[in-house]
Simulated assay, not measured.
Amino acid sequence: MNAALFPDLIVNGETVPHTLVAAETQNHDAPAGKPGIAWRKAANAVAIRTLLLQEARARGLKPERKEVAPDKFETDEEAQIRGLLEMVVDPELPEDDAIYAEWKKDPSRFRAPPLWEVSHILCACDPRDEKAKHDAMHRAEALIPLVGKDAKSFAVIASRESDCGSKSSGGTLGQLGPGDTVPEFEAILRHLDEGEVTPQPILTRHGWHIVRMDAVALGAVLPFAAVKPKIAEAMEKASWARQAQKFVQKLVASAEITGADLRSV
Score class of each variant (00 low, 15 high):
Asp180Gln: 09
Phe185Arg: 00
His28Ser: 01
Glu77Thr: 09
Lys105Thr: 13
Asp135Trp: 07
Leu52Thr: 14
Met1Glu: 12
Phe224His: 00
Ala260Val: 14
Ala3Arg: 13
Ala234Gly: 12
Leu20Trp: 15
Gly60Leu: 04
Val118Asp: 03
Ala132Lys: 14
Val265Met: 11
Arg40Asp: 15
Thr19Pro: 02
Asp193Ile: 05
Val68Glu: 12
Pro63Asn: 03
Phe6Met: 05
Phe224Ala: 12
Leu143Ala: 11
Leu115Cys: 04
Gln245Met: 01
Thr204Cys: 10
Lys105Pro: 09
Arg139Gly: 06
Lys246Trp: 08
Glu74Leu: 02
Trp208Asn: 06
Arg128Tyr: 06
Asp193Ala: 11
Pro114Asn: 15
Leu85Asp: 06
Ala215Leu: 05
Ala217His: 06
Val21Trp: 12
Leu262Val: 12
Ala234Arg: 06
Pro199Arg: 14
Gly219Lys: 13
Gly148Tyr: 09
Val88Asp: 01
Gln243Gly: 08
Glu77Ile: 04
Lys34Met: 11
Glu24Thr: 03
Ser162Asn: 10
Lys34Ile: 00
Ser153Leu: 04
Ala4Lys: 15
Glu74Ser: 04
Glu78Ala: 15
Gln54Cys: 07
Gly207Thr: 03
Glu233Val: 04
Gln175His: 07
Pro91Asp: 00
Arg160Trp: 09
Ala225Met: 06
Pro17His: 11
Ala124Asp: 12
Leu93Arg: 00
Pro31Thr: 08
Ala30Tyr: 14
Ile210Gln: 02
Trp39Met: 01
Gln26His: 08
Ala43Asp: 08
Pro114Cys: 05
Leu251Arg: 07
Ile121Pro: 07
Ile157Cys: 10
Glu102Trp: 00
Ile121Thr: 13
Pro223Ser: 10
Ala241Pro: 04
Glu95Asp: 03
Thr181Cys: 14
Lys72Gly: 04
Glu233Pro: 00
Leu122Ser: 13
Asn12Trp: 08
Ala22Cys: 02
Ala79Pro: 11
Met235Tyr: 01
Leu222Cys: 10
Ile48Gln: 10
Asp8Val: 07
Arg57Val: 06
Ala4Arg: 09
His138Trp: 13
